[in-house]
Nucleic acid binder design. Sequence first.
DNA 1: ATAGGGTTAG
Length: 622
Amino acid sequence: MMKRSFVGKPTWWRPATTEIQISPIREFVIRCSNHDIHGAISAMDILQTLHIRADPLVYSSLIKSCIEARDIHSGRRVHRHLFDSDGNIPATFLINQVLGMYVRFQRVEEARQVFDVMPEKNVVSWTTMISAYTNMKRGRMGLELFVMMGRSGVMPNMYTFSSVLRASDGLETVSMIHCPIVKVGLDSDVFVRSSLIDVYAKWGDLQSGFYVFDEMPTRDLVVWNSIISGYAQDGNGHVALDLYSKMRRAGFPANQGALTSVLRACTGLTLLEMGRQVHTHSIKFLTDLILNNALLDMYCKCGSSEDATCLFDRMVEKDIISWSTMISGLAQNGRNVEALELFDRMPLKPNYITMVGVLFACSHAGLVEKGWRHFNSISNPGREHYGCMVDLLGRAGKLDDAVKFIKEMNCEKDVVIWKSLLSSCRVHKDVELAGIVGRRILELNPDEEGAHILLSNTYADSQQWEKVREVRWEMKARGVKKEPGCSWIEVGNRIETFIVGGSSTRTHQEMESVSKEVVRLIDRVTNEGGYIPDTSFVLHDVEVEQKKESLKYHSEKLAVAFGLMMLGKDKDIRVIKNLRICGDCHNFVKLVAMVERRKIVIRDAVRFHHFQHGVCSCGDYW
DNA sequence: ATAGGGTTAG
């Protein structure tokens, strides 16, 4: 009798590859993967011991489930399965899915390892890696991969371009990427366009960004917001607001992103009333963290820390930006102690920016000891932190300590640091040190306007008119111009601007009545508040009467007078000034707030002054 | 299977 001989395993035990035989298991795996990943993977283990290769859909479904369940361990098991089963190389699209999974789990290096050994990389593989790197702020690597991709002969698509644009490190790179986009006609894609607009704006070429925007046949909300936020961030709030209303007229609804950009524009322009209006539109998005943070910042920077506090207390979710915004916002509004208390209550780890706000609060509250303690708690202090400390020591009159600190500090001694010291020299009338520091600044940057002014002011304080003339002459020779004092106030839906001695938005006649109001106020505070003009703030060597005359027309006085004339009794007067408020105006406004029984808020170049009942929130320490 | 915009200091 012939014996039947078997070679290897019996035929019925052969790896089954047909759809019919595996389909029950496949269905089991897919069904499991929705609620029980471990069970599903165990089923895969069984398949493997049976030498049954699951079909791609099974893997695809499993990977998706792992991502959804945020289960990286199971993800790794599926990954191993994919490559272990009998040496076959998985389909590229499956490996791409594995890449995507690791990227989602923030494991770019793991993704990279898989990517590097992929035999066939397609557009998706490359794009997944490039966008992973750009999202992790590793743009350099993203660009490198983009170049490698080109060399490997794979054509980028719109997905690739919109990702790689965000990795660009300067205008040169942007235009280098822009060229091929135009060449292959991918600039019609809205994603590519919004990336282009954003990245042009980011590197300071808003004009090119606007050009990309302007020639678009079809736009969507994101494209609109890209250009709006570009202008808002560039400090061009008026253009941003104008574009926003155009967007609304074009029929687009205001979503979170758009409202956030509009708020930023309001913040930049210090438009509190408009900001409030935006707030009412924002209640639809009550829980949007970014929008809330923008609102906090708007209220703080528009001088209403009360509104900011109220919103902050109601916010369900707060991140480090919310806390940092509130801390420095309170400090900018003279609520330094509260700022520091808030910092003590903060449940999150402070970052670089948080500590800038904390030190700012210490320096404006004159808390030297506390400032030192906080400074020493920073593990890796940077330029801004050193700057705050110089400010802190200088303001407190510890000029020697400030000099010592600068000498010993482990960071570049730039113009900002020296300017901070120079302004302390002026406050504490140290003419000698001012001369040295001023010269130092002008060596670093001969066209530094602020240093010239500070220096000449310091000399003027101590009546060294010869030196004042010297500095003024040097400014003239260098063509350095003093920025004229300028104040503005929001009345109705308009902004009224006042420059020294006049107005840029009112007629001559209207100015006459504003001047009359200033005179009336001066009389009133002189009689009822004992106001004496402090002519030491007039910096030219002229007769006393002439000095008094010139003080009258400081822009902040005009703006305050205008506000009192135009706004209802129940409204606070809110004025913004481009330079620092002068000492005479500071005293004057304190008295006006008292005799007129009004709350007056002036934001100068550095911070807010809240005047009420004859005192200022800064405690005259500024 | 891969893509775009919005928030804190200076």
